[in-house]
Design a protein around this nucleic acid. Structure first.
Lengths: 337, 337
DNA sequence: TATTTTTACGAAAACGATTACGTTGCAAAT
DNA sequence: ATTTGCAACGTAATCGTTTTCGTAAAAATA
């Protein structure tokens, strides 16, 4: 490995001069600067991140916290799409991305300590249990963080506009003539809470009566759980004409259950999902859903995190709402009321 | 930040003793060792990765090279599943995972240099253009690497058994009575080459005649491209009764084209995919496909890479074949011949 | 008892960079 | 002629560990 010492020897300048020249300091004369750079190139020099980091404390590396309850991990299409976008934008801005886990070298370690250990300049937090004390510890620490789809005090949040999304879906379903709309909502996350709120408020606005039995809890991103909820809904004396699901993925469970009941989508029952994952658009019939802008979400997350890192003093936490787009699909049937 | 110096002062022992005690060296007496650990705990000490790395050269961090031509990145379901498994196993073994890009801090840098810069202990290479000189440079370097789905000299490879997979598919389709089987094959990757070989050899074994016009090139993981190939196949004077696709994802393009032609799967034409991604099993009809064992692939990749890192001297490169499983689905119709 | 070995610890030198501060030489200002 | 200022470069400390090599005392051996 060739170091600045080697360059120093070969070029005859001191290591500090070499360092400064290589970092483009104006302190060094143009000629020497050029010479040093030339020598460095010839010798195949590149800096050692560890040594540099030890002094500067800047790693040019951001961490991502990305662990979901359902263990789907990177197979979670929505989040992996967001993450991919984070990665692309971070790379464009010169940052690498490292996954943060709870252990290091076989020793357990909190998220926060892990980040400090790895000297992450900042952290993107997505798809985790936001009630986890360790997550809270990390967010409240001095390390810049941005969260995706969850709002914390004094922490920049990139939010997919779930309220608006579910609201638009309800409006669309209403416009198609439906008045008996059921909602299966994922439990215990702020994301699904917002979707539920959007559902309620829009129903109220439109004057739709929603019996309690039309609201079923289910686990987020869990087809089985939504399947059970679907069964209950279909067995009601007065079943709904349209069922809204927590997310596209969960809908699959519902779809199977609807098939078992011998019903056809959308002729016998209408359905809508959420997310707009690829799958939803290749199903037959195409699923009516709300597509989240994963690319914008990830990009904004990376950009804002890096801004927070760079302008640490002046940066103020903010919330950024990313809008999505209704994909009508063909799973909601025009109906009379 | 509390350092071993602080512990040294507080405990009265030298920094070297502290370091040794903390690292469990047998050189240090049990009592002092316990005392030092206690003090370290009280003070909330944990090591600084940069400083440690600077001396030891071990980062406990592995890099992943993961850039596909189609830019689907982490949205590539097969690879993201593999990667997730790599991550889980690596974490279990005490390693973190960092993405390797071509630039760092806005400066371009080769993959190899990037790995050296970040001091990656090893690299997992997947889903890239294996002809890229930079990739080759990395593989031939002193950094331990494992490749997924591609064989290089002197480099451990974790291989999904594509030959066997496509072979089993052909056999299954044959058993269902089909004799006019077309094959759309992805271009230019060793993965798709193997699938093609499996197709050819099994056809030969079974005595199936394969006219040239039944073999269509298309881009791997590209629905549009497979859609075009499908159209050509359907327009043949003597069209096939079954079409095999490069992968499940590509099949979607074919599916749309088949729909456009007013044909029904599987009544009018049978189809088969490859990969066994989630999508394939929720399509109606369920897709006949070959499910690759992504979990085993990722796990083996991580395990072998870390073995290569740990036993650098004795480790010999090897090839590990991971078997998959045929998912019959309902897209291949029983037919007479 | 005299000698060797072992045990338990410390001093100091790395690792490879950055950076505050010091030192020149020389031109410009006084 | 003296002072000042600045450009251009060097010295040396520093970041937080690990590790080699010593060394004193204790234990084992002869």
């Amino acid at each position: 490995m060739v170091t600045i010492k080697d360059i120093s020897k070969k070029s005859g300048f001191s290591t500090s001069t070499v360092s400064k020249a290589l970092n483009g300091s104006s302190e060094i004369g143009e000629e020497t600067s050029e010479l040093i750079k030339k020598v460095a190139n010839e010798m195949g020099y590149f800096p050692n991140a560890a040594a540099r980091l030890l002094k500067t404390k800047h790693s040019n590396n951001i961490g991502v916290l990305f662990i979901d309850e359902m263990q789907s991990g990177l197979a979670h299409e929505y989040f992996s799409a967001v993450l991919n976008s984070v990665k692309d934008e971070a790379e464009r801005l010169g940052y690498d991305m490292t996954f943060i886990s709870r252990n290091i070298g076989r020793k357990p370690m909190s998220y926060y300590n892990h980040c400090k250990y790895r000297n992450c300049d900042g952290v993107v937090i997505a798809c985790v249990d936001f009630n986890d004390p360790e997550v809270i510890e990390l967010i409240q620490s001095e390390i810049p963080t941005v969260t995706i789809d969850h709002i914390f005090n004094d922490c920049t949040a990139i939010m997919s506009d779930n309220l608006k999304g579910s609201s638009e879906l309800v409006q669309y379903i209403y416009d198609k003539g439906h008045r008996k709309i059921a909602f299966i909502h994922g439990e215990n996350t702020s994301v699904t809470q917002r979707r539920l709120s959007g559902f309620y408020s829009t129903c109220k606005k439109l004057g739709i009566n929603v019996p309690n039995e039309y609201i079923k809890p289910a686990r987020y991103h869990d087809p089985k759980s939504s399947g059970l909820a679907t069964r209950e809904l279909l067995n009601l004396k007065d079943p709904p004409t349209c069922i809204m699901y927590p997310d596209d993925f969960s809908f699959i469970g519902g779809m199977n259950e609807i098939e078992k009941h011998g019903l056809k989508i959308p002729d016998d029952i209408s359905v809508a999902g959420y997310d707009g994952i690829y799958l939803s658009q290749v199903l037959r019939p195409q699923l009516c859903t709300f597509k989240q802008n994963t690319e914008a979400l990830g990009k904004e997350a990376a950009r804002n995190l890096i801004m927070a890192i760079t302008d640490r003093k002046t940066f103020v936490p903010k919330q950024i709402w990313i809008e999505g787009e209704l994909l009508a699909g063909k799973s909601v049937k025009e109906t009379d009321f």
